[in-house]
């Protein structure tokens, strides 16, 4: 007889439900079964109405983020074998985002915040293509390399209680990416990105809970990025204050 595991899956069908509820499924257990495999097994063999997002199955597309036993996880990178001692595994849609259906979250709030911080190389004067690439040493690249590993999965937003409290907070992913470009030797856009870092909805909504960095599947450490952003914003505040005292405009 095959051993099975109980997987409790959150369901929300906007046509008939007013609030999410939980449905239990028995899934045949195997050592190499990921949560994503289990969800696909349920959808293919047991209930085709279950909705969940996935694509690459190898922790690079960032689309399969869910809460597994109350922790934000990529379902493809999380295995049932790690929950053996628990009576059941509970899978919910990511915290802090609106739920479209079942396990499908609407992460557009996060995507909008990403665009806000202009996460691309900003140059005061664009070089013609014929001039070649902007050179960079390995040491210069090392300064932002970790922050550039983000796959936009949104786990850090599900982990952040300040984003949960106020969705206007730009949040860990967007602020880490802002820092990634601010620390890039080829970028000249730090000054114009400061206005978003300086805002209450910028780095100053963060209280260094640090859970965003714990759950990040790519070790980006957004909490470190935001708090280095606080130092930068702090200095920017002092410089602006000095400029005002010298008679310049408030920036």
């Amino acid at each position: 007889m095959t051993e099975t595991v109980t997987v409790r899956v959150q369901r929300y069908r906007p046509e008939e439900d007013t609030a999410p509820w939980e449905q239990s499924f028995e899934v045949p257990y195997s050592e190499d079964l990921s949560i994503l495999d289990a969800l696909n097994q349920i959808k293919d063999q047991q209930d085709p109405t279950l909705s969940h997002r996935w694509s690459c199955r190898m922790a690079i597309c960032g689309s399969c983020g869910v809460m597994v036993n109350n922790e934000p996880k990529l379902s493809c990178k999380t295995f049932l074998r790690d929950y053996r001692e628990q009576a059941a595994v509970t899978v919910r849609a990511l915290d802090n985002f609106p739920i479209e259906r079942d396990l499908v979250s609407d992460i557009s709030g996060f995507i909008d915040h990403l665009e806000t911080v202009q996460p691309w190389l900003i140059r005061s004067e664009e070089q013609p293509v014929s001039a070649g690439a902007y050179p960079q040493t390995p040491e210069q690249m090392q300064r932002y390399a970790a922050f550039s590993q983000c796959i936009n999965c949104g786990l850090c937003y599900a982990a952040c209680p300040q984003f949960g409290r106020d969705p206007a907070f730009l949040g860990p992913g967007a602020l880490a990416l802002a820092q990634r470009y601010n620390l890039d030797s080829r970028d000249e856009g730090a000054a114009q990105r400061m206005q978003w870092l300086n805002a209450g909805e910028g780095v100053w909504s963060c209280t260094f809970v640090g859970y965003c960095s714990e759950v990040c599947p790519k070790d980006v450490d957004p909490a470190a990025a935001i708090n280095r952003g606080k130092v930068a914003s702090d200095i920017n505040y002092a410089v602006n204050l000095l400029n005002i005292l010298r008679g310049k405009d408030d920036a």
Partner: peptide
């Protein structure tokens, strides 16, 4: 977005 005085 407005500058926060949180730095103080």
């Amino acid at each position: 977005m407005r500058r926060s005085h949180e730095p103080v």
